[in-house]
Design a protein around this nucleic acid. Sequence first.
DNA 1: CTACCGATTGACT
DNA 2: GTCAATCGGTAGA
Length: 209
Amino acid sequence: MPACDVKPLPRDFYDRDPVAVARELLGMLLVRINSEGRSAGIIVETEAYLARNDPANHAYRGQTRRNASMFGPPGHAYIYTIHTRWCLNAVTEPAGVPSAVLIRAIEPVEGVKLMRERRDGAELREVARGPWRLCQALAIDRALDGHDLTLGRGLWIARPNSPTPTPASIVSTTRVGISSATDLPLRFYLADNPFVSRPARPDPSERQK
DNA sequence: CTACCGATTGACT
DNA sequence: GTCAATCGGTAGA
């Protein structure tokens, strides 16, 4: 039993430091239901974006129309576009504190056929490896910006029956694709999981430019 | 209004 | 490994 019996994580789960939420979201089940059916996957990679001292955070320079969801209450989705593609975050900490966790990759476990169709028949490993790929696989777009993830409707996150990852199985490293605050170890993923979007940067001290 | 740029991806050398 | 596509959001005139 599948995933249909699992309840959404409560708001308290999200009402915390985004680093704690990012780590604990690993191994959780991301569930999506729409008119096409049901699909779900295990979260294997996340990144935390902090409310303070984090220039890479979209909210670093204050609230705008785009990032408004991050200033709202915890447990809601913040969905933004980059290069015309969608990415999904879970908002953390109380309203007014703009922090969030970017969900970067999932391991497909339910509705795999549907997810592959949405991804134009991509190989299983490529179906949801990367923040935009997983949104396409789950049919997540702007319409879900601000969606409440604690209701168990449409889109939510739940604790699956499978065991919680041990701390030793979680790798922390630097975030991907940003041009500031590149040294903060705010990316987390499950070690050796083939659905993680890309491996850790070899050695921060080797970084050029 | 225009100019700039990006929490990416897929194609290509 | 490198690089351009491509367009909404943002800032500034």
